[in-house]
Design a protein around this nucleic acid. Structure first.
Length: 405
DNA sequence: TCTGGGGTCCTAGGACCC
DNA sequence: TCTGGGGTCCTAGGACCC
């Protein structure tokens, strides 16, 4: 039986939502109508394009390129600072609430994309009619625009919503694959990135159609599982479900590009503590405990490396995670190379209730855990920066979250 | 004033066991 | 007196997504 899937994708989400917020605050211009971008903070070395307007796109500006490069493509481009991430989440939530009127089988694929499984909800109206209604209602009621992809599986719905933009509804049914999808360059296929495309090109594969007709087993031989996946995608095959149930994260990480290269390990430590505080706070909010800690460094030569270590017992304690993180840092720290980025990630997360009680751990709640609970309560009420550990006081005010896509 | 940050999944190679 | 093979677990690195 055919499934009935919609993919809803906000057009230039971060730019549109910033535009709406500016208009709300009395701005006379709608930045959606000018060549402009939302840019990261260049002074702190985060100078990349976070979002672009349609006019900016006409100059060939792409997301994640440097602002420097965007300026070279369009010297008069206007650059705006983004909103707080929490403000974007509010706009995302408005969209979600509207979509919930149609079904509860919604997967929030990212802050600006949702899949809807409408299979159970088609009575009088067709899937296309519902897609059109959603598109019109979002524009009228929420003030921004979306593309809607209409298809019988997630992959085809996602490919469809990526066709002509903005504010459009496209179908991509099985009998349209050849005419609408196979003609596209292979780089347009979901899950084909900049490393694989040149390899395919050198094999004579230039369009999605070329890939679809290529020998499947040769693809598997050359690219393993990924080869099989992209071959299936090129043929419009995707059996994955709309994951509408809330899922717990499998890893939690936090990283920061430092405003200046750091050459002394003791300058990294307070920053590491601040980053650790963040991830441990999130762990506790999810009621999860971690089993491994992973540290990432990037040198000023843009060389990345990471090291991980298993925790002796699973924990969500800032103190315990930091202890291990510091050990890893000491082990991996390269004396010769100035550090540009520092990141920490916790992995192998399990439910606190299901955690393995280790022989080594004393699972009676100790004093530091009690303290952390109190600190968490204050953070939840008054904000993350309302209270910090003594060691992070200097750094925490410098490290501001700029979250983007 | 050149290159973010948060994720998921996969792979290759080494250690170790039988 | 030559160097198995299957399995699991772990780590580092990389591709891809938004």
């Amino acid at each position: 039986m055919n499934r009935q899937i919609l993919h809803v994708d906000v057009n230039n989400a971060f730019l549109s939502w910033t535009a709406l917020e500016m208009l709300k605050n009395g701005s006379k211009i709608d930045i959606r109508t000018e060549p402009c971008i939302i840019g990261g903070d260049e002074e702190n070395r985060r100078g990349i394009v976070i979002a672009k307007s349609m006019k900016a796109k006409e100059y060939g500006i792409v997301t994640a390129e440097t602002i420097y490069s965007a300026k070279s493509k369009c010297p008069w481009i206007k650059i705006y600072k983004g909103l707080k991430y929490s403000q974007y989440k509010e706009y995302s939530q408005q969209l979600y609430c509207l979509l919930r009127e149609y079904t509860n089988m919604i997967e929030r694929f990212s802050i600006d994309e949702c899949f809807l499984d409408m299979t159970q909800h088609l009575k009088e109206r067709t899937l296309l009619e519902i897609g059109k209604e959603i598109n019109a209602r979002v524009r009228k009621e929420l003030g921004f625009t979306v593309n809607v992809g209409v298809a019988h599986n997630k992959l085809l719905a996602k490919m469809a919503s990526d066709f002509k933009k903005p504010d459009r509804v496209h179908t991509l049914f099985e009998d349209e694959i050849a005419s609408k999808m196979w003609t596209l360059p292979v780089s347009e296929l979901f899950m084909l990135g900049k490393k694989t495309v040149p390899k395919l090109n050198s094999m004579g594969i230039h369009t999605i159609g070329d890939l679809a007709k290529y020998d499947r087993y040769e693809m598997i031989q050359k690219f393993g599982k990924h080869g099989d996946l992209i071959w299936e995608y090129a043929n419009g095959i995707d059996h994955s479900e709309v994951k509408y149930k809330k899922e717990l994260p499998k890893s939690i990480g936090h990283s920061i590009t430092l405003p200046e290269d750091v050459t002394k390990i003791d300058e990294l430590e307070p920053i590491l503590l601040t980053l650790t505080e963040h991830i441990a706070f999130q762990l506790r909010r999810y009621h999860l405990v971690a089993n491994t800690v992973n540290l990432q460094l990037r040198t000023n030569q843009f060389k990345n490396f990471s090291h991980q270590k298993k925790l002796l017992y699973s924990t969500a304690s800032t103190k315990e995670i930091y202890k291990t993180a510091k050990e890893i840092l000491t082990e991996m720290y390269p004396k010769e190379s100035p550090i540009r980025l520092l990141g920490i990630k916790v992995d192998k997360l399990v439910n606190k209730e299901e955690e393995q009680i280790s022989f080594f751990s004393n699972r009676n709640e100790n004093d530091s855990e009690k303290l952390e609970k109190t600190v968490d309560a204050i953070k939840s009420k008054f904000g993350f920066y309302s209270i910090t550990l003594a060691g992070t006081l200097e750094t925490s005010k410098d490290i501001k979250l700029i979250s983007t896509e």
